[in-house]
Write a protein that binds this DNA or RNA. Structure first.
Length: 265
DNA sequence: ATGTCGGGTGTTACCCGA
């Protein structure tokens, strides 16, 4: 079985590319982030036409996450227990955002996660990001406490570069989010809860994201911020992993590349 | 920050978010 995660930066703009990727890559379960649409706007038909079912949550033009599967899609859960809310502006009641959806697909509990960006050091959005990750860690630890043999994949855009070599130049990020110690500690806490980054060992020195500006992609100036973290029982099934750099090329590319994991049957 | 992308709208010019 093959799992993938991909921040597509608008599923409506990119639907042809995403379905072509599914057909080309043989991915069985795809976690999508930044669909940037409401549920009623999600393009279900092109996915169903090639044999995939969709579970999606989207409340507005922001965020939006989905799981797409051709091996079944059961027990869909929107958000996780304790997931913090966010208010886009003063005077607006905080509400849960469309940043997490889980579904069981072919025996794997697949989560599509879009971790808050954090914006800038000192911004309230960074405090929200850290709270969000702490709550995710608590929930994810609980899932393993319930069933130590559970096959769980925490996949998506984590908006964190855990190591210095996960960005092209640390000097550029000296006053930025994504590399700050609290963010890295929040990521490490999820790993410590029992979820291993199964992709890094197979993709040394590779990036998953390149900014649209400044010719970052041709200059190979990227970041590794998209991950698949797997529970012990799932990590034991991993036979390989890759980052599909090809998908960042050409007109109409997302700024993120798909991250793939192969499992034994 | 923005030499770029998305989405949106009090739309054809600007807003926000990444």
């Amino acid at each position: 079985m093959r799992l993938a995660t991909w921040n597509v930066n608008s599923v409506r703009t990119r639907v042809d590319r995403v379905t072509a990727f599914l057909e080309r890559s043989g991915v069985d379960v795809l976690a999508i982030q930044e669909t940037k649409c409401r549920d009623d706007q999600f393009p279900h038909l092109p996915f169903e036409a090639i044999g995939y079912e969709v579970a999606h949550v989207g409340h507005s033009q922001w965020n939006g996450v989905a799981v797409v599967s051709r091996v079944g899609i059961d027990d869909v859960q929107v958000g996780f227990d304790g997931m913090p809310s966010w208010s886009s502006k003063e005077g607006v009641e905080p509400a849960p955002e469309a940043r997490a959806i889980g579904a069981t697909c072919g025996g794997v509990r697949m989560w599509s996660l879009y971790v808050p960006n954090g914006r800038q050091l000192g911004d309230p959005h960074l405090a929200y990001k850290l709270e969000w990750l702490k709550a995710l860690r608590t929930s994810a630890a609980g899932w393993l406490a319930e069933d130590g043999d559970a096959q769980i994949a925490l996949t998506g855009d984590w908006n964190i570069a855990p190591q210095d070599d996960d960005v092209w130049d640390m000097a550029v990020f000296s006053h930025s989010t994504h590399v700050s110690p609290p963010e890295r500690a929040a990521f490490a806490a999820v790993v410590d809860a029992g979820y291993a980054d199964v992709v890094r060992p197979h993709t040394p020195g590779e990036f998953t994201y390149w900014d649209y500006t400044q010719l970052r992609f041709p200059r190979r100036e990227g970041m590794r911020i998209d991950f698949q973290l797997c529970s012990p029982a799932l990590a034991a099934r991993v036979t390989g992993a890759s980052i599909d750099r090809q998908e960042r090329k050409g007109k109409g590319a997302s700024d993120h590349a798909p991250v793939l994991v192969d499992l034994t049957d």
